[in-house]
Amino acid sequence: NQASVVANQLIPINTALTLVMMRAEVVTPMGIPAVDIPRLVSMQVNRAVPLGTTLMPDMVKGYA
């Protein structure tokens, strides 16, 4: 099973992602693959992402 990107903290809307905000976890359903974490750094979320939420492609501006 491939790990997905999960929020390590509450990420407010329009926040630029940093490594500290994300962790890799095997979850269902799968979200953004953990291998993409370096690519996500400095991209912004388009909604508030609660702690423990799996990041989906439509939550990150410019990802999809």
Score class of each variant (00 low, 15 high):
N1Q: 15
N1L: 14
Q2L: 10
Q2C: 15
Q2S: 14
A3Y: 05
S4Y: 03
V5C: 10
V5D: 01
V5P: 01
V5N: 01
V6Q: 04
V6M: 11
V6T: 09
V6S: 05
V6D: 00
A7M: 05
A7P: 01
A7E: 00
N8Q: 12
N8I: 07
Q9S: 14
Q9N: 07
L10E: 13
L10H: 11
L10Y: 07
L10N: 13
I11G: 01
I11F: 01
I11S: 00
I11K: 00
P12L: 10
I13K: 05
I13E: 15
N14A: 07
N14T: 05
N14V: 03
N14L: 05
T15H: 09
T15S: 06
T15E: 08
T15Y: 04
T15F: 05
T15G: 06
A16K: 05
A16I: 08
A16T: 09
L17E: 01
L17H: 00
T18L: 07
T18W: 03
T18M: 08
L19D: 12
V20M: 10
V20K: 06
V20T: 10
V20N: 12
V20Y: 11
V20P: 06
M21H: 09
M21W: 02
M21D: 08
M21N: 08
M22F: 07
M22T: 02
M22H: 00
R23I: 09
R23V: 14
R23Q: 08
R23G: 14
R23K: 13
A24G: 12
A24D: 15
A24T: 10
A24L: 12
E25N: 05
E25Q: 04
E25G: 04
V26F: 05
V26A: 12
V26K: 03
V26E: 15
V26L: 07
V27H: 04
V27A: 10
T28C: 15
T28P: 02
T28M: 05
P29T: 13
P29F: 11
P29S: 08
M30I: 14
M30V: 13
M30R: 03
G31K: 00
G31F: 02
I32Y: 02
P33G: 14
P33F: 03
A34I: 08
A34E: 15
A34P: 06
A34Y: 08
A34M: 04
A34Q: 11
A34F: 10
A34D: 15
V35Q: 14
V35G: 10
V35Y: 05
V35H: 13
D36M: 03
I37L: 13
I37C: 06
P38L: 05
P38M: 05
P38Q: 08
P38H: 12
R39V: 11
R39Y: 14
L40A: 01
L40D: 00
L40V: 08
L40C: 04
L40M: 07
L40T: 01
V41P: 03
V41G: 03
V41L: 12
V41Q: 08
M43Y: 13
M43I: 05
M43R: 06
M43C: 08
Q44L: 06
V45D: 01
V45C: 06
N46M: 06
N46P: 03
N46R: 08
N46V: 15
R47C: 07
R47P: 02
R47V: 13
R47A: 14
A48F: 07
A48K: 07
A48G: 10
A48V: 09
A48S: 09
V49T: 11
V49N: 01
V49G: 01
V49E: 01
P50G: 10
P50K: 12
L51Q: 09
L51G: 14
L51M: 15
L51T: 12
L51H: 10
L51V: 10
L51F: 11
G52V: 02
G52A: 11
T53A: 14
T53P: 00
T53N: 14
T54F: 02
T54K: 04
T54M: 04
L55T: 02
L55I: 14
P57K: 07
P57S: 13
P57A: 13
D58K: 08
D58F: 06
D58W: 04
D58C: 15
D58V: 10
D58H: 05
M59D: 14
M59N: 08
M59W: 14
M59I: 10
M59C: 06
V60D: 02
V60L: 10
V60S: 01
V60K: 00
K61L: 15
G62Q: 13
G62E: 14
G62Y: 09
Y63G: 07
Y63N: 07
A64R: 09
A64K: 13
A64C: 14
